[in-house]
Simulated assay, not measured.
Amino acid sequence: MGKPLNVGIIGCGAIIAQYLANIPRLETLKLVAVADLDPARAQAVADGYDGVRAVSVEDLLAAEDVDLVLNLTIPAAHADVALKAIAAGKSVYGEKPLAATTAEARQVLDAAREAGVAVGCAPDTVLGTGVQTARKAIDDGLIGAPISATATMVTPGHERWHPNPDFYYQPGGGPLLDMGPYYVSALVNMLGPVVSVIGAASHTRTERTIGSGPREGQVIPVATDSHVTGILVHASGALSSLVMSFDAVNTKSSNIEIHGELGSLVVPDPNYFEGAVELFTLGADAWETLPVSAGYVDSGRGFGIADLAATPAGSEPRAGGQLAFHALEVMESVLESARSGAAVQIRSTAARPALVELTVLAGSAEETTAEGQVQEIVA
């Protein structure tokens, strides 16, 4: 108690910049080491931060001063790196998805349970003020009993901006496994666990052309579906509709809408931590923007690790392995249903994580709101 959680990062690709922007802001976390298969990339990160050393993956896993491994490798390597970290006695927080398959993810959770270490997993965007304010509105009964939800993500493809987009178009990638975790995790936070799904999927192209970076113009193969739709049946009885596409161009649909007996909510993009929540109640004349009322204020990637650090031993973090496993099984089952044409029952479950009270973590920018005093969690 009172000591920062020492973090070592494995994988120094594009996503690391977002974690590096936030870990130094959080007093409960301390970055001590980084590693990458390309030593030069790890060294470039270490050079920019005092007290951070660049080491090999093996040395990071063996380091006595690393409490938690932040796993930022490609999805195909998530399980392997997590299992090695757990075998070394370290807790793990990974980028989404938890693993490439539920079979691999189950190995990770089982190994962590046996070793007595914690597992967390992105996205922690659901802990920000956007999704959490919507969650509180639902909990407060502002829309009555939830009936349905829609979740829509449309983009023409990550190869247009990502310099190394290959893994997005291989098994373990695709729009559902890449972007779906944000949406499914948000839906489970707001509406509870899923009990069955049905899906359909397609892909319109067998090749993609990289649009930026040193490989611009290079053609890469597509080996996974790039447009996926699904219906999720929640244990509560609510029905959620998903559209996840790397094929279509754009949409005017809200990222997420929740509809209830007494009103409807527009929920901000779950790929981000903030955003306006809009409410239209039965009999109203117009939409109203709700005041920020829950979630980590001024948050970003890495806040899920801070939440894990504040979670009592033996309790499940809000951005924890059980939720990540459930979301992965839901997505994997949508794809299975798309292949078979039959509904698929979901075997796992995940409790709705506890609401994040409006909170400023120590070390982040302090704010107050019209809702009143903001809670502060100290190291």
Score class of each variant (00 low, 15 high):
158 H>G: 03
93 Y>G: 07
138 I>L: 12
125 T>M: 03
153 M>K: 07
128 G>Q: 07
153 M>T: 05
146 P>N: 08
127 L>H: 03
102 T>C: 04
158 H>I: 12
143 I>P: 08
125 T>L: 03
138 I>A: 13
137 A>N: 07
158 H>R: 10
143 I>H: 07
119 V>P: 06
107 Q>I: 03
152 T>M: 08
134 A>L: 10
119 V>A: 04
93 Y>A: 09
139 D>H: 05
154 V>G: 07
99 A>C: 11
107 Q>V: 01
160 R>W: 02
96 K>P: 02
156 P>L: 00
112 A>M: 03
94 G>V: 00
113 R>I: 01
136 K>Y: 07
105 A>D: 04
122 A>C: 13
143 I>L: 08
121 C>T: 07
96 K>C: 03
116 G>A: 06
115 A>P: 09
120 G>F: 12
143 I>F: 06
143 I>D: 09
138 I>W: 02
157 G>M: 08
127 L>C: 11
150 T>A: 12
154 V>C: 00
113 R>C: 02
110 D>M: 11
133 T>E: 04
143 I>A: 11
135 R>F: 11
129 T>I: 12
101 T>V: 05
122 A>L: 15
150 T>L: 13
158 H>L: 14
149 A>K: 09
115 A>K: 15
154 V>W: 05
120 G>W: 13
155 T>C: 07
131 V>M: 10
126 V>L: 15
124 D>W: 02
113 R>V: 05
140 D>Q: 15
142 L>F: 11
159 E>H: 00
103 A>T: 05
93 Y>L: 10
107 Q>E: 14
115 A>N: 10
128 G>P: 11
158 H>K: 12
99 A>F: 03
116 G>I: 07
128 G>Y: 13
131 V>A: 10
133 T>W: 01
151 A>R: 05
124 D>P: 04
141 G>V: 14
138 I>T: 11
111 A>R: 00
138 I>M: 04
121 C>I: 05
102 T>A: 00
151 A>G: 10
119 V>R: 01
151 A>V: 09
93 Y>N: 06
107 Q>W: 09
140 D>A: 14
138 I>K: 00
147 I>K: 06
137 A>C: 02
159 E>N: 04
135 R>G: 06
106 R>S: 03
161 W>S: 06
105 A>L: 06
141 G>T: 14
128 G>K: 00
151 A>Q: 09
97 P>T: 06
110 D>F: 10
93 Y>M: 09
100 A>R: 14
115 A>R: 15
146 P>L: 12
144 G>I: 13
129 T>V: 15
125 T>R: 13
107 Q>K: 15
115 A>Y: 11
122 A>T: 08
152 T>E: 04
149 A>M: 08
115 A>T: 12
123 P>F: 09
97 P>K: 04
143 I>K: 01
102 T>N: 02
117 V>F: 09
152 T>V: 15
118 A>Q: 09
123 P>I: 08
125 T>S: 15
120 G>S: 04
147 I>V: 14
159 E>G: 05
132 Q>Y: 07
158 H>F: 14
139 D>K: 02
154 V>Y: 03
149 A>G: 13
128 G>W: 12
161 W>V: 12
156 P>T: 02
155 T>L: 13
102 T>L: 01
107 Q>F: 09
125 T>Y: 05
156 P>S: 08
140 D>P: 15
132 Q>N: 08
116 G>H: 00
93 Y>S: 10
153 M>A: 13
161 W>I: 11
119 V>E: 07
123 P>W: 09
156 P>E: 01
93 Y>F: 15
